[in-house]
Amino acid sequence: MSLINSVNQASPTSVSSSQTSSPSASSTSTTGNPFLDSVRLPESEPVAESNNQSLTQDDFFSLLSQQLSMQDPFKPVDNDQMISQMSSFSTVDGINNLNSEIQNLNSVMSSSQALQASGLVGRKVLIPSDTGNVSAENRVLNGVISTPSSMNDITVRIEDESGQLVKSYVVDGSAGGNIDVKWDGLDQDGQPVAAGNYSMKASGKIDGAAQELPVSTYAHVESVSLGTAQTGAILNLRGVGGVKLGDVLAVSET
């Protein structure tokens, strides 16, 4: 009798415990009914919709299948028209793949071009600019004057960054064409100029009239940047900045 009484006394406690725990269980993932819980479908996480608006080949064939299934049986789609649609999509898909391959090829070519241009580091290149840099390590400024025809004398003017005349001298232009010219980095009084950028201007008489002549200068290559597929490799020049490799006119031995 005592054993039965102890069981009967414990039963209300266990029932009340299950009653208090069942609401929390039903609020999460159970219903309280073992049969319903066993056949209940598992909850799945919501899947974010894709933002890609482009049609793929699978989308095209899905649309084509829908079109064929909903066509009028008395007026079926013409075979030539269907083949034309499939050919058009295949052409567009092939062009997209070709564009991707070209972009990859441009990236590889840019890297290869930069690797080849790295051999110019430490050398001098001729650029279409009349501004060059004079430093303590290299006080000589070399350039090339382009003339349309031969002329007796070409006046060369060296100007600082503010446009002030530093030195003026005359070179022979009787050979015509591209004439090499050099400035030793000294002013009109024979004193070394301060380090910085200087412009080399040139003028001469053509048919008796004075005319400004285009001047290109040599610059020292300090480093090479990859650049982009549009610009190609970029040469970083001392005191001048970056120029595209395609703008280089010539490369000097020293």
Rank of each mutant, 00 (worst) to 15 (best):
R157P: 00
G196N: 11
S87F: 01
K201G: 15
L41W: 00
T147G: 04
V240E: 05
Q113P: 07
S252N: 12
I127A: 11
A25L: 12
G227D: 00
G204H: 11
I127E: 02
V7L: 11
L249V: 15
T91I: 12
T228M: 02
Y169F: 15
S24Y: 06
D93F: 03
K182V: 14
A117C: 08
Q164H: 07
S88L: 07
L98C: 10
Y198M: 11
T13P: 01
L141S: 11
T28R: 09
S62T: 14
V240M: 04
T31A: 08
G232I: 03
I158D: 05
S168H: 01
L165K: 10
L213W: 05
P12A: 07
D80V: 08
N133L: 04
A48I: 02
S252P: 00
G119P: 00
S29K: 12
G173R: 01
G163T: 03
L186P: 07
A229L: 01
M82E: 10
S216Y: 03
L120A: 06
P34S: 09
E253Y: 00
P12V: 11
V166T: 10
N104R: 15
G122T: 04
Q85T: 08
V156K: 09
D153G: 01
S16R: 14
N138H: 14
D78H: 11
T155R: 06
I179Y: 05
M70P: 01
V251R: 01
I102A: 10
S112D: 12
N142A: 11
D187V: 06
L55H: 09
S252I: 01
S14R: 10
G94Q: 14
P46S: 04
L98R: 15
P12C: 02
S44Y: 06
N97P: 05
K182Q: 13
S149F: 04
P46K: 09
P46H: 04
S150I: 01
M200W: 09
N99K: 12
G232W: 05
T228C: 05
A195T: 15
A250K: 09
L213P: 10
V243T: 13
A194Q: 14
D153S: 12
K205S: 14
V121H: 09
S135T: 09
P76E: 00
N5I: 13
F89I: 10
G143N: 10
I127F: 02
F74S: 07
D189W: 08
A202L: 10
E45Q: 12
A194P: 02
V240T: 12
D247Q: 14
L226H: 00
F89G: 04
K75S: 07
P12T: 10
S38H: 05
D72R: 09
S14Y: 13
N106T: 11
Q71D: 08
D247M: 07
V181I: 15
A250C: 05
V7E: 04
V181P: 07
S38W: 03
P214E: 03
N96R: 15
S88E: 06
V243Q: 08
D58W: 00
L55R: 13
A194V: 01
I95M: 15
E137Q: 14
D189T: 15
E222T: 13
A210Q: 12
I95C: 06
K205D: 10
Q113W: 01
E49V: 15
M151E: 09
A202D: 08
S16G: 14
S199E: 12
